[in-house]
């Protein structure tokens, strides 16, 4: 299991490749990548992601450990960025490895659902006419109830 919190960009292709190649007897690897998109207003110049340095790593490790245990994963990877990002840049990725695909898909969704509303990150969209904090969506909180 590997959890990385960084401001620098990451190389999705290289991360996915080395994650997949490091596995033994795992029939399935699933990856997900989150990418910065424009604000609803359509004028976003930059997205600023704030986080809680002391807590972020621990919170992500706790979420990843729970996924490892629950789906008997061979491995899990979480990379999440913070700082100033532009549209179309990659914010984060997760990868899961399991013997069968259902476990790998489900564990990746679980990781994403928990990262959305239980990891201490806050997004701010900075546009031409000012800045707005991205509001949490009720659906994101509701999504946790299925696990």
């Amino acid at each position: 299991m590997r959890v990385v919190v960084q401001d620098a960009p990451f190389d999705f292709g290289r991360e996915a490749e080395s994650f997949a190649k490091a596995q033994t007897n795992m029939g399935a690897v699933v990856t997900f990548t989150g990418i910065v998109r424009d604000s609803a207003k359509g004028d976003m110049a930059v997205m600023e992601i704030e986080h809680y340095p002391g807590m972020t790593q621990k919170a992500l490790e706790k979420i990843a450990s729970e996924a490892m245990e629950r789906w008997e994963l061979g491995d899990a990877l979480v990379i999440h960025r913070y700082g100033r990002l532009h549209r179309d840049e990659m914010i984060m990725m997760v990868a899961t490895a399991a013997r069968h695909r259902v476990a790998a898909f489900e564990a990746a969704e679980f990781l994403m659902d928990y990262l959305k509303s239980r990891a201490p990150f806050w997004k701010k969209e900075i546009g031409a006419d000012g800045a707005d904090w991205v509001a949490a969506r009720e659906e994101d909180d509701d999504a946790l109830s299925r696990w």
């Binding site: 999440h80 994403m112 201490p120």
Partner: peptide
């Protein structure tokens, strides 16, 4: 102790 709005990760 830390106070913050609902988190928006991912």
């Amino acid at each position: 102790v830390a106070f913050f709005p609902p988190m928006t990760g991912g």
